[in-house]
Amino acid sequence: MGKPRASTPFSLRLTAAERARLESEAAGKTLGAYIRERLLGEDAAPRKRKGNSPIQDHEALGRVLGALGQSRLS
């Protein structure tokens, strides 16, 4: 047996007014987390975030990208 398959996404089309309403009701939560909570209740399993960013020093990356932008290299 191989690795268990990742959960599959579910797509939902909303009108602009429906999305705006949900975003205002979410009150700082991500829209996906808010919708999961509303559909599945307070005991909805939290989503696991991948925190393994290859970037360790974002400030240094910003300085390098700024210097590259000013170098006029195409």
Rank of each mutant, 00 (worst) to 15 (best):
R5H: 10
R5A: 15
Q56K: 07
D57N: 13
G32N: 12
Q56I: 02
R63H: 02
S53N: 04
S11R: 08
G2N: 10
G69V: 04
R21I: 09
L40Y: 09
D57F: 10
A33Y: 06
D43Q: 09
R49K: 03
Y34A: 03
K3D: 12
P4K: 05
S7G: 15
H58F: 01
G2F: 05
N52G: 10
A17Q: 08
K29E: 11
D43H: 12
S24V: 11
S11T: 08
E25D: 14
R36G: 06
L40I: 08
E59Y: 04
A17W: 02
Q56M: 02
K50H: 12
F10Y: 10
A45L: 07
I55S: 01
R63T: 01
L40V: 10
S7Y: 15
Y34T: 01
R5F: 05
A67R: 15
G28K: 01
R38S: 00
P46F: 06
A27L: 07
D57W: 09
R36D: 06
R49Y: 02
K29C: 06
L61A: 15
K48V: 12
K29T: 05
N52M: 09
P54R: 04
A27M: 06
M1Y: 11
R72P: 03
L73D: 07
Q56N: 05
R47W: 12
P9N: 05
G2E: 09
E18C: 05
L40K: 09
S24P: 02
R21G: 11
P54C: 01
E25M: 14
K29N: 08
Q70L: 14
G2Q: 07
H58D: 00
G62K: 15
S53I: 00
S11W: 05
S71Q: 04
L61Y: 15
E25R: 14
G66H: 05
L68K: 13
E18Q: 08
G69C: 07
M1E: 13
L22N: 06
R13I: 10
E42A: 13
I55F: 04
A33C: 05
H58P: 00
G28V: 01
R19H: 02
D43P: 11
A33S: 07
R21F: 08
A60D: 01
R47G: 11
E59V: 07
R49N: 00
I35D: 10
E42Q: 13
I35F: 11
S24K: 14
P9S: 06
S74R: 00
G62M: 14
Y34C: 01
A20S: 14
M1T: 15
